[in-house]
Design a protein around this nucleic acid. Structure first.
Lengths: 225, 225
DNA sequence: TAGATTGTTAATCGATTAACAATC
DNA sequence: TAGATTGTTAATCGATTAACAATC
């Protein structure tokens, strides 16, 4: 049973794994509060209706080593997930678009725990510039690229309308930003060294909508009135 | 080349397909504005860097029939996607949790186009009840289940803190709601006839965080200072 | 010791991609 | 007609699940 250190360059981690790890992390932190010291894949799998094997595969990428018969030491496991997901090195981020979604995100104070610190917010609307939102002053967008470069900002959050998103993305990249969390309903055209995460609520809603529509269709067939 | 009508009961549509269709839909509507009449999978694939075959497979689920050599008639294709995704039968929804995220969602006026109409918003905070947000009065949460049942509401949106989410979900289901769009960072325990869509921004952020952390690690290795 | 769980390899499943005849 | 694109089947790829020896 030799064990190789996981080398992230060889193979990128599956996206489903990346999205399950924070779920596990949350649960395991709860267990720690309840003074558990070990947790098994069976425990985690039962909580989220997942196969223990899948949980084990997921945890494997963090490099954690477990004990047969008992599971994984909780404190070490939490640390391994946090280290792997980059929660420890908190990165500073700029947010552009101080509308209601932007304001909501500025207010998410737990983002810090996940490696994100929104240090400034920008807008192009004179009515918004200078206003304070959740303790942060909204700055003029034209200041953003220079500030980003000076402050070595790596992450940008886009919460502007779709029509302005590409322009904002270009400015961010100009300022040295290399990862964009995009809430605008637009696919951004960027070079492929830029990480883009689309949070397109309309697409998510469309998927929900289809399932509801299908459920209604099936129900109508089963009970013809 | 016989063609069977797609029967949604036989096989559920892959989630990736459901999330790509609205993207195509948006693009094709743009093309229609520019007076295109036909669009091919090659066109769509080039726009989004996808294989034409994949686009074709995706469009197939809508039942649209194309013309070899020219592609799909734009107007019919838009109609087919909208019908398939359930954009035509707009469903009424209740939103619970009038915090900043709730307020942002109430303000998303395009949700109607995707089959969702937020008709009422609720909260348990006396300070919020009675307030008007984006033209909608915030109601007391205790009124929600009865109102949902009387108004035949099918969709619930949860934007409360994680600690309250399960309780809200239970109330929604009690009111006859069968589909939940959950923005709280919690996995809801519901019976499996309830559709749950988790919009867990922390998980999404964690995935972004990991990629940024990895990019930084690689960069550090490539340029040792 | 007995048995539950780990680590790891193999099999399965589902989604993507390739191949190609049909066709406009 | 020639050739691009559809519709459809087969091959590939990647993620999930199953199997099982090692082990505490």
């Amino acid at each position: 049973m030799k064990r190789l250190i996981y080398d992230a360059r060889l193979k990128s981690v599956p996206e489903p794994t990346l999205r399950r790890l924070p779920i596990y992390h949350r649960y395991i932190k709860e267990l720690k509060k309840d003074h558990w010291t070990f947790v098994s894949c069976t425990d985690i799998g039962e909580e989220f209706k997942l196969e223990p094997t899948q949980v084990r595969k997921d945890l494997e990428v963090t490099g954690i080593v477990g004990k047969p018969r008992v599971g994984y030491p909780i404190a070490a496991l939490i640390a391994a997930i946090e280290e792997f997901l980059g929660f420890n090195n908190v990165n500073e981020a700029f947010l552009v678009g101080a509308g209601s979604m932007g304001a909501a995100l500025i207010g998410y104070d737990k983002f810090q725990d996940y490696g994100l610190n929104i240090v400034a917010a920008f807008d192009n609307d004179a009515a918004k510039i200078g206003k304070i939102v959740h303790g942060k002053t909204i700055l003029a967008i034209h200041k953003m690229p220079d500030m980003a470069r000076k402050m070595h900002i790596l992450i940008g959050i886009i919460t502007v309308p779709g029509s302005a998103a590409q322009e904002v993305a270009d400015l961010m990249i100009q300022g040295g930003i290399c990862a964009i969390w995009n809430f605008a309903p637009v696919r951004l055209r960027v070079s492929d060294n830029i990480i883009v995460h689309n949070e397109d609520l309309y697409c998510s809603l469309a998927s929900l909508s289809q399932k509801v529509a299908q459920a209604i269709r099936l129900r109508a067939e089963e009970m013809p009135s």
